[in-house]
Computed example of a mutant assay.
Amino acid sequence: MQNYFFNPFLTAWQQPPFAPPGMSPFGPGNLPLAPPPSEIPMQPYKIDPGSIRRCKRKYTYIWLKNGDSFWFYPVYIGRKSISGYRWIGFWWIYYGTDLKKIESFVCV
């Protein structure tokens, strides 16, 4: 994991994608304000870049190919990657991953 620090000599587009707690690097209103649902959904979909687009700004449960699974709130879905906020049990952290690493998902 790479540590990011603000550098006043870089322009805004060169700064790393971080923001103060409670703020999103993609603008206000993207950070989920509540915890995810307490129950894990049971009918996952296989990953497809087109199919996961409908999950943008929705609570999404993700199963990774390495066996990890977690609640996720996507705010960016690209052709090869996804980023947003990952629930770690008591708060959201900013997280991103390659779409190839996702085994399946369900958004609610």
Rank of each mutant, 00 (worst) to 15 (best):
R57Y: 07
T60L: 10
G50C: 01
T60W: 09
Y45A: 07
K58G: 00
T60K: 11
S51C: 06
P41L: 03
K46I: 01
G27H: 06
S24G: 11
Y59M: 10
R57N: 14
R53D: 01
P32V: 02
S51L: 15
G22W: 05
G50A: 08
K46W: 00
G27D: 06
K58R: 15
P35G: 14
Y59D: 15
Y59I: 05
Q43H: 14
P49A: 06
M42I: 09
P41A: 03
T60Y: 10
S38L: 12
P25F: 07
F26P: 00
P28A: 13
Q43F: 14
S51G: 15
S51K: 14
M23Y: 07
P28R: 11
Y45V: 00
M23Q: 14
R54W: 01
C55E: 11
P32E: 03
Y45N: 10
Y45R: 12
K56F: 00
P32I: 03
Q43G: 03
P35W: 05
F26R: 08
K58I: 00
R54M: 07
E39K: 13
I40P: 03
K46Y: 05
L31H: 01
L33D: 05
Y45D: 02
R53P: 00
G29S: 02
C55M: 12
S24W: 11
M42V: 05
P37V: 09
G29I: 03
A34H: 11
M23N: 05
S38I: 06
P37T: 08
G22K: 05
G22S: 05
P36K: 05
P35K: 13
I47M: 15
I52N: 07
M23W: 02
Q43V: 14
I52S: 09
C55I: 13
M42Q: 12
R57D: 08
P32S: 04
K58L: 12
P41E: 04
F26G: 01
S51Y: 10
R53M: 10
E39V: 10
P37F: 09
Y59Q: 09
K46D: 06
P35L: 04
G50S: 08
K56P: 00
K56I: 13
K58F: 04
M23R: 13
K58P: 00
R53I: 04
T60C: 15
G29L: 06
P44M: 14
